[in-house]
């Protein structure tokens, strides 16, 4: 489909199958416009949009469904709750007699119980986002359109919304299209990714491929404060301690959390600059997590700074180091490296 915009035309021709798709790109690359076209909020789009087999837009056949007929669950960046309605009335807004409603499920999933009778003006940024998510989810949408749901929040609040997004993805079973410019977020949330540059698709496909090293250049300075986000099931170790099982071949020591029962799904963030990269196997270091992997990309991210992307058991890790280290150690694609991660560098997102 295509849409003329002020600076360029948005041209997207892509077929996505994943249950969760990250849409990435710099500010002004057309991410939000793409969501608005899908939601039917932008007039003037041409082409064809099909979601789950339903034709929403087909300009050749003169089909252009109104927003209310599209069943898109739109969650804008700033939540945009109805200020004259309570949280509960907001969530129930789209529920109609004779249509399947998922109000109760959405309220439970996003843990809105204690705030149902409050007005949006009294809710925190993270709470507003949760209500907005529930409001979209309650209409039983064919697709959730999330426009940077975490961007307007500061880091601590972000940590409280991300797990809910993971629950929505895993438990509500509604496909989602997720706009973000944070690589870490995209890596943990998305199975597929779509990279936009000036309104055109630069890359699309499995998230692990698209969100590799090459993505960073297109996202510019957003790599500042980059984090590796890992999600998995917690395991108790009889001798003491807690491990996060990310994949078959990758488990991490994380700060002990005895209050969480084994099997709990949890997400952890590891800042890219808190990881030590070594060319040889490490022994006798205090860091309890030493992980072997292969470098898949190295690039400059600023004055004297570099970021290496390392594949460990199928997961992508980003490590920040100086350009001098890259030269001296000979860090290059294909090279085998070891990463040391202190347990305390793993911060649980909750």
């Amino acid at each position: 489909m295509s849409l003329p915009l002020a600076r360029f035309a948005l041209e997207v021709d892509v077929r996505l199958e994943g249950a969760s798709v990250a849409v990435m790109g710099r500010s002004g690359s057309g991410k939000t416009s793409l969501l608005e076209v899908l939601a039917g909020l932008r007039r003037g789009a041409r082409g064809r949009v099909v979601v789950g087999g339903r034709v929403l837009l087909d300009s050749a056949a003169r089909v252009d469904l109104a927003p209310e007929a599209r069943r898109m669950g739109y969650v804008p960046q700033d939540a945009l709750l109805f200020p004259h309605l309570t949280a509960e009335q907001n969530v129930r807004y789209g529920a109609r007699a004779g249509r399947p409603s998922r109000v109760d499920e959405a309220v439970a999933l996003l843990e809105l119980g204690p705030m149902l009778h409050r007005y949006p003006a009294t809710l925190s940024g993270g709470e507003k986002q949760r209500v907005a998510l529930a409001r979209a989810l309650a209409t039983d949408p064919a697709l959730l359109l999330l426009d940077e749901p975490l961007a307007a929040l500061d880091v601590t609040l972000k940590e409280r919304v991300l797990p809910y997004l993971l629950r929505v993805r895993d438990e509500a079973r509604v496909p989602m299209l997720y706009v973000t410019h944070q690589l870490g977020e995209a890596r943990v949330l998305a199975k597929e990714a779509l990279l936009l540059e000036d309104g055109r698709v630069r890359a699309a496909g499995p998230a692990s491929e698209v969100l590799g090293a090459s993505a960073r250049g297109l996202l510019a300075s957003e790599a500042e404060g980059e984090e590796n986000i890992l999600e998995g099931a917690l395991e108790r170790v009889p001798e003491g301690g807690t491990r996060l099982r990310v994949t078959e071949g990758l488990s991490l020591w994380v700060p002990d959390a005895p209050e969480l029962p084994p099997g709990t799904r949890a997400a952890y963030a590891v800042p890219a600059e808190d990881i030590l990269l070594s060319m040889g196997p490490l022994s006798g270091v205090s860091a309890r997590n030493v992980l072997a992997g292969n470098v898949v990309g190295v690039e400059r991210v600023g004055a004297g700074e570099a970021a290496a992307t390392v594949d460990i058991a199928g997961t992508r890790w980003v490590v920040r180091l100086t350009e001098a280290s890259v030269r001296e150690l000979g860090v290059a694609p294909g090279v085998r490296v070891h990463l040391a991660v202190k347990t305390s560098a793993c911060r649980r997102l909750r």
Partner: peptide, 13 residues
Amino acid sequence: PRLVAVARTLGDT
């Protein structure tokens, strides 16, 4: 006006 846009996506004419 974006509140109205949201209301539309929630099924309102």
